[in-house]
C-alpha cells in the first residue's frame, strides 16, 4: 500500500467509517439539508437543532464512501455547540486542509483529512457533509419529519 493511500485512509477516518458518530435522523431537529454528489451518487443529510444561533445538537445520515461518511461523522463531533460564524470558519479551515494538505496546529482530528489533497477527485467526498451542514444553517427552519425531496 502506497504512502499516499495510507495518508488518505488514516486510522481516524477508518474508525469514523466503521463506527459513525451521531448517525441517523435527529427527532428534535429544526433544520435539515440534503447534499448529494451527482457524479458518484453519494448522499448526506444533516439534521440540526439550532438554539438561537448555536448548534445545540446535530446528526447526519446518508450513504457514500469511507471518506464522505467519516468526514460527516467527524464533522458532527466538531460542530456541536458552535455558532454559525464559528461553523463557517471551521469549514474554511477544513477546506484548506483537504485542498492544500496544510494543517494549522489548533485543529485536532480534522487534520486526518490532509491526505485527501493528493486525491483531488475525493475532495468533494470530504466536503459533502459540510456543504449540507452549511446549507442547513442558512436554510429556513423545517420540521425534521419532512421527507427529503430527492429520496
Amino acid at each position: 500500500m502506497s504512502a499516499d493511500l495510507t495518508e488518505l485512509y488514516q486510522q481516524v477516518i477508518l474508525d469514523h467509517n466503521r463506527r459513525p458518530r451521531n448517525r441517523g435522523r435527529l427527532p428534535t431537529a429544526n433544520r435539515v439539508a440534503h447534499g448529494d454528489n451527482p457524479s458518484c451518487g453519494d448522499q448526506c443529510s444533516v439534521y440540526l437543532r439550532l438554539d438561537g444561533d448555536r448548534i445545540a445538537e446535530l446528526s447526519f445520515d446518508g450513504s457514500g464512501c469511507a471518506i464522505s461518511q467519516a468526514s460527516a461523522s467527524l464533522m458532527t463531533t466538531q460542530l456541536k455547540g458552535k455558532t454559525t460564524a464559528q461553523a463557517e470558519e471551521l469549514y474554511r479551515q477544513f477546506h484548506d486542509i483537504v485542498t492544500t494538505g496544510q494543517t494549522p496546529g489548533e485543529i485536532s482530528d480534522l487534520a486526518a483529512f490532509a491526505g485527501v489533497h493528493t486525491f483531488p477527485a475525493r475532495i468533494k467526498c470530504a466536503t459533502l457533509g459540510w456543504h449540507a451542514a452549511l446549507n442547513a444553517l442558512k436554510g429556513d427552519a423545517a420540521p425534521a419529519t419532512t421527507e427529503l425531496p430527492s429520496d
Binding site: M1, S2, D4, L5, L8, Y9, C40, D42, S63, G64, C65, A66, I67, Q69, F119, R122, C125
Partner: peptide, 13 residues
C-alpha cells in the same frame, strides 16, 4: 461494508 469509491481508489493504486 466497503464502498465502491474506496474499492476503486485502492484498485487504482
Amino acid at each position: 461494508d466497503v464502498h465502491a469509491h474506496d474499492v476503486v481508489t485502492f484498485a487504482d493504486e
